[in-house]
Protein backbone atom coordinates (compact mmCIF):
# COMPACT_ATOMS: atom_id res chain seq x y z
CA UNK A 1 0.00 0.00 0.00
CA UNK A 2 2.63 2.40 1.12
CA UNK A 3 4.98 1.76 -1.80
CA UNK A 4 2.18 2.09 -4.29
CA UNK A 5 1.27 5.51 -3.00
CA UNK A 6 4.84 6.63 -3.19
CA UNK A 7 5.36 5.51 -6.77
CA UNK A 8 2.19 7.29 -7.87
CA UNK A 9 3.41 10.44 -6.30
CA UNK A 10 6.83 10.46 -7.95
CA UNK A 11 5.27 9.75 -11.30
CA UNK A 12 2.98 12.71 -10.91
CA UNK A 13 5.68 15.11 -9.86
CA UNK A 14 7.89 13.96 -12.71
CA UNK A 15 5.12 14.79 -15.09
CA UNK A 16 4.55 18.29 -13.82
CA UNK A 17 8.26 18.93 -13.87
CA UNK A 18 8.57 17.87 -17.52
CA UNK A 19 5.55 19.84 -18.54
CA UNK A 20 6.87 22.94 -16.95
CA UNK A 21 10.15 22.68 -18.85
CA UNK A 22 8.33 22.61 -22.18
CA UNK A 23 6.06 25.43 -21.11
CA UNK A 24 9.02 27.47 -19.96
CA UNK A 25 10.83 26.90 -23.25
CA UNK A 26 7.77 27.93 -25.25
CA UNK A 27 7.41 31.03 -23.09
CA UNK A 28 11.01 32.10 -23.58
CA UNK A 29 11.09 31.52 -27.33
CA UNK A 30 7.96 33.52 -28.13
CA UNK A 31 8.28 35.39 -31.38
CA UNK A 32 8.40 39.14 -31.03
CA UNK A 33 6.27 39.48 -34.16
CA UNK A 34 3.41 37.19 -33.22
CA UNK A 35 3.78 36.26 -29.59
CA UNK A 36 4.45 39.44 -27.63
CA UNK A 37 1.95 42.11 -26.59
CA UNK A 38 2.56 45.63 -27.89
CA UNK A 39 2.69 46.98 -24.36
CA UNK A 40 5.59 44.67 -23.54
CA UNK A 41 7.77 46.00 -26.33
CA UNK A 42 10.06 48.77 -25.17
CA UNK A 43 12.01 49.85 -28.20
CA UNK A 44 10.42 51.04 -31.39
CA UNK A 45 11.48 52.69 -34.59
CA UNK A 46 9.93 53.87 -37.82
CA UNK A 47 10.50 52.41 -41.24
CA UNK A 48 8.95 53.34 -44.58
CA UNK A 49 7.77 50.38 -46.63
CA UNK A 50 7.43 51.63 -50.17
CA UNK A 51 6.98 55.09 -48.71
CA UNK A 52 4.41 54.31 -46.02
CA UNK A 53 5.50 54.83 -42.43
CA UNK A 54 5.20 51.99 -39.91
CA UNK A 55 6.21 51.83 -36.27
CA UNK A 56 7.94 48.52 -35.59
CA UNK A 57 9.84 46.84 -32.72
CA UNK A 58 13.55 47.57 -32.85
CA UNK A 59 14.83 43.99 -32.38
CA UNK A 60 13.58 42.68 -35.72
CA UNK A 61 15.04 41.99 -39.13
CA UNK A 62 13.65 43.92 -42.09
CA UNK A 63 11.65 40.83 -42.98
CA UNK A 64 10.16 40.39 -39.52
CA UNK A 65 9.45 44.11 -39.31
CA UNK A 66 7.47 44.04 -42.54
CA UNK A 67 5.49 41.11 -41.18
CA UNK A 68 4.89 42.92 -37.94
CA UNK A 69 3.59 45.83 -39.99
CA UNK A 70 1.08 43.49 -41.62
CA UNK A 71 2.70 42.27 -44.83
CA UNK A 72 2.20 38.59 -45.60
CA UNK A 73 4.96 37.54 -47.94
CA UNK A 74 4.04 35.60 -51.03
CA UNK A 75 7.24 36.56 -52.78
CA UNK A 76 10.52 37.92 -51.43
CA UNK A 77 10.74 35.30 -48.72
CA UNK A 78 12.31 31.87 -49.00
CA UNK A 79 14.75 30.40 -46.54
CA UNK A 80 14.62 33.25 -44.01
CA UNK A 81 18.27 32.52 -43.20
CA UNK A 82 20.49 34.08 -45.83
CA UNK A 83 20.83 31.11 -48.17
CA UNK A 84 18.32 31.40 -50.99
CA UNK A 85 18.51 34.97 -52.24
CA UNK A 86 14.75 35.55 -52.34
CA UNK A 87 14.58 38.60 -50.11
CA UNK A 88 16.66 41.20 -51.99
CA UNK A 89 15.95 44.63 -50.59
CA UNK A 90 16.97 48.12 -51.63
CA UNK A 91 16.88 50.97 -49.14
CA UNK A 92 17.96 54.48 -48.47
CA UNK A 93 18.11 55.97 -45.01
CA UNK A 94 16.54 59.30 -44.27
CA UNK A 95 19.01 62.09 -45.00
CA UNK A 96 21.55 59.84 -46.72
CA UNK A 97 22.52 59.87 -50.37
CA UNK A 98 23.60 56.23 -50.51
CA UNK A 99 21.33 53.59 -52.00
CA UNK A 100 22.00 50.36 -50.13
CA UNK A 101 21.18 46.70 -50.66
CA UNK A 102 20.50 43.96 -48.15
CA UNK A 103 18.93 40.58 -47.58
CA UNK A 104 15.79 41.36 -45.60
CA UNK A 105 16.05 38.20 -43.54
CA UNK A 106 19.58 38.92 -42.37
CA UNK A 107 19.52 42.64 -41.70
CA UNK A 108 18.41 44.54 -38.63
CA UNK A 109 15.83 47.25 -39.20
CA UNK A 110 17.10 50.74 -38.66
CA UNK A 111 15.24 53.90 -37.96
CA UNK A 112 14.31 55.88 -41.06
CA UNK A 113 14.83 53.12 -43.63
CA UNK A 114 12.95 53.70 -46.87
CA UNK A 115 12.75 50.30 -48.42
CA UNK A 116 11.42 48.24 -51.27
CA UNK A 117 11.93 44.61 -52.21
CA UNK A 118 13.03 43.23 -55.54
CA UNK A 119 11.27 39.89 -55.80
CA UNK A 120 12.46 38.99 -59.27
CA UNK A 121 15.41 39.79 -61.52
CA UNK A 122 14.70 39.52 -65.24
CA UNK A 123 17.88 37.86 -66.49
CA UNK A 124 19.11 35.68 -69.33
CA UNK A 125 20.49 32.26 -68.57
CA UNK A 126 22.11 30.46 -71.46
CA UNK A 127 21.71 26.73 -71.86
CA UNK A 128 24.66 24.49 -72.60
CA UNK A 129 25.66 20.86 -72.50
CA UNK A 130 28.31 20.53 -69.84
CA UNK A 131 29.45 17.16 -71.14
CA UNK A 132 30.22 18.59 -74.57
CA UNK A 133 31.69 21.92 -73.53
CA UNK A 134 35.45 22.47 -73.96
CA UNK A 135 37.31 23.54 -70.83
CA UNK A 136 38.58 26.57 -72.63
CA UNK A 137 39.06 30.18 -71.59
CA UNK A 138 36.72 31.41 -74.28
CA UNK A 139 33.63 29.76 -72.85
CA UNK A 140 32.64 32.86 -70.86
CA UNK A 141 32.75 35.21 -73.84
CA UNK A 142 31.04 32.65 -76.02
CA UNK A 143 27.96 32.51 -73.80
CA UNK A 144 28.01 35.87 -72.07
CA UNK A 145 29.67 38.26 -74.57
CA UNK A 146 28.34 41.26 -72.64
CA UNK A 147 31.09 40.76 -70.05
CA UNK A 148 33.33 42.60 -72.51
CA UNK A 149 31.27 45.69 -71.70
CA UNK A 150 32.36 45.70 -68.05
CA UNK A 151 33.57 49.20 -67.22
CA UNK A 152 35.08 48.19 -63.88
CA UNK A 153 32.80 50.53 -61.99
CA UNK A 154 32.55 48.06 -59.09
CA UNK A 155 28.83 48.72 -58.61
CA UNK A 156 28.19 44.97 -58.57
CA UNK A 157 30.64 44.46 -55.73
CA UNK A 158 29.06 47.27 -53.75
CA UNK A 159 25.60 45.81 -54.34
CA UNK A 160 26.53 42.29 -53.21
CA UNK A 161 24.89 41.47 -49.85
CA UNK A 162 27.36 38.60 -49.43
CA UNK A 163 30.29 41.02 -49.79
CA UNK A 164 31.80 39.05 -52.65
CA UNK A 165 34.34 40.59 -55.02
CA UNK A 166 31.90 40.40 -57.90
CA UNK A 167 33.74 42.69 -60.30
CA UNK A 168 36.96 40.76 -59.73
CA UNK A 169 35.38 37.51 -60.85
CA UNK A 170 33.85 39.16 -63.90
CA UNK A 171 37.32 40.41 -64.79
CA UNK A 172 38.71 36.92 -64.14
CA UNK A 173 36.13 35.47 -66.51
CA UNK A 174 37.40 37.78 -69.24
CA UNK A 175 40.79 36.19 -68.77
CA UNK A 176 39.29 32.72 -68.70
CA UNK A 177 40.53 32.15 -65.16
CA UNK A 178 38.16 29.40 -64.01
CA UNK A 179 39.51 28.92 -60.53
CA UNK A 180 39.14 32.60 -59.58
CA UNK A 181 35.63 32.80 -61.02
CA UNK A 182 34.64 29.66 -59.14
CA UNK A 183 36.29 30.36 -55.80
CA UNK A 184 35.42 34.07 -55.64
CA UNK A 185 31.80 33.51 -56.54
CA UNK A 186 31.30 30.41 -54.45
CA UNK A 187 29.26 32.04 -51.67
CA UNK A 188 26.82 33.58 -54.19
CA UNK A 189 23.15 33.12 -53.29
CA UNK A 190 21.96 34.34 -56.69
CA UNK A 191 19.82 37.17 -55.33
CA UNK A 192 20.25 39.15 -58.55
CA UNK A 193 21.12 42.52 -57.01
CA UNK A 194 24.39 42.73 -58.96
CA UNK A 195 22.61 42.22 -62.26
CA UNK A 196 19.94 44.76 -61.42
CA UNK A 197 22.54 47.43 -60.66
CA UNK A 198 25.04 46.74 -63.47
CA UNK A 199 25.31 49.53 -66.06
CA UNK A 200 26.81 47.04 -68.54
CA UNK A 201 23.81 44.72 -68.15
CA UNK A 202 25.88 41.71 -67.20
CA UNK A 203 24.19 38.81 -65.40
CA UNK A 204 27.01 38.07 -63.01
CA UNK A 205 25.44 35.23 -61.10
CA UNK A 206 24.58 33.14 -64.16
CA UNK A 207 28.06 33.72 -65.53
CA UNK A 208 29.46 32.52 -62.22
CA UNK A 209 27.24 29.43 -62.23
CA UNK A 210 28.70 28.43 -65.59
CA UNK A 211 32.22 29.03 -64.31
CA UNK A 212 31.75 27.02 -61.14
CA UNK A 213 30.30 24.01 -62.91
CA UNK A 214 33.05 24.00 -65.51
CA UNK A 215 35.68 24.28 -62.80
CA UNK A 216 34.02 21.63 -60.62
CA UNK A 217 33.84 19.20 -63.51
CA UNK A 218 37.09 19.81 -65.34
CA UNK A 219 39.31 21.91 -63.09
CA UNK A 220 39.33 20.07 -59.76
CA UNK A 221 41.34 16.91 -59.12
CA UNK A 222 39.48 13.61 -59.02
CA UNK A 223 39.20 11.63 -55.79
CA UNK A 224 40.79 8.25 -56.54
CA UNK A 225 39.27 6.58 -53.51
CA UNK A 226 35.79 7.25 -54.87
CA UNK A 227 36.48 5.37 -58.11
CA UNK A 228 37.75 2.43 -56.14
CA UNK A 229 34.65 2.34 -53.96
CA UNK A 230 32.35 2.50 -56.99
CA UNK A 231 34.14 -0.52 -58.43
CA UNK A 232 33.75 -2.41 -55.16
CA UNK A 233 30.02 -1.73 -54.99
CA UNK A 234 29.54 -2.69 -58.63
CA UNK A 235 31.25 -5.99 -57.97
CA UNK A 236 28.87 -6.53 -55.03
CA UNK A 237 31.63 -6.57 -52.45
CA UNK A 238 29.32 -5.46 -49.63
CA UNK A 239 26.18 -7.18 -50.81
CA UNK A 240 26.39 -10.24 -48.60
CA UNK A 241 27.18 -8.34 -45.45
CA UNK A 242 24.48 -5.74 -46.08
CA UNK A 243 21.90 -8.39 -46.88
CA UNK A 244 22.76 -10.06 -43.60
CA UNK A 245 22.34 -6.81 -41.69
CA UNK A 246 18.98 -6.16 -43.33
CA UNK A 247 17.80 -9.44 -41.86
CA UNK A 248 19.42 -9.05 -38.46
CA UNK A 249 17.17 -8.64 -35.45
CA UNK A 250 17.18 -5.57 -33.29
CA UNK A 251 18.91 -7.09 -30.27
CA UNK A 252 21.80 -8.25 -32.40
CA UNK A 253 21.97 -4.92 -34.25
CA UNK A 254 22.15 -3.13 -30.92
CA UNK A 255 25.19 -5.18 -30.00
CA UNK A 256 26.90 -4.46 -33.30
CA UNK A 257 26.10 -0.77 -33.01
CA UNK A 258 27.31 -0.24 -29.48
CA UNK A 259 30.42 -2.34 -30.07
CA UNK A 260 31.57 -0.56 -33.21
CA UNK A 261 34.91 1.25 -33.15
CA UNK A 262 34.93 5.00 -33.54
CA UNK A 263 37.34 7.06 -35.61
CA UNK A 264 38.89 9.97 -33.73
CA UNK A 265 38.47 13.66 -34.64
Amino acid sequence: MKTKKKSVKTKKSMKTEKKSIMARIAESTKSVTTGVEEKDIKHWLTIYIMGKAYKVPAVLTIMQAMEYAGYKFLRSCGCRAGFCGACSTVYRKKGEYRLQTAMACQTRVEDGMYLVQIPFAPAEKVTYDIDKEDYSASVFLKYYPEIARCVSCNTCTKACPQDLEVMDYVQASLKGDFSSVAEDSFDCIQCGLCAIRCPAEIVHYNLAQLGRRMYGKYGMPEPEHLKKRLGEIKSAKFEKELRKLVNTRRKELEKIYTGRDMEKE
Binding site: D131, R212, R213, M214, Y215, G216, P221, E222
Partner: peptide
Protein backbone atom coordinates in the same frame (compact mmCIF):
# COMPACT_ATOMS: atom_id res chain seq x y z
CA UNK B 1 31.11 15.57 -59.66
CA UNK B 2 30.01 14.87 -63.21
CA UNK B 3 27.55 17.73 -62.99
CA UNK B 4 30.35 19.99 -61.79
CA UNK B 5 29.58 20.42 -58.09
CA UNK B 6 32.50 21.88 -56.17
CA UNK B 7 32.82 19.44 -53.29
CA UNK B 8 35.73 20.31 -50.99
CA UNK B 9 38.91 18.42 -51.77
CA UNK B 10 42.31 17.88 -50.20
CA UNK B 11 45.31 18.89 -52.29
CA UNK B 12 45.73 15.33 -53.63
CA UNK B 13 42.15 15.27 -54.88
Amino acid sequence: LELGAMIDRESNG
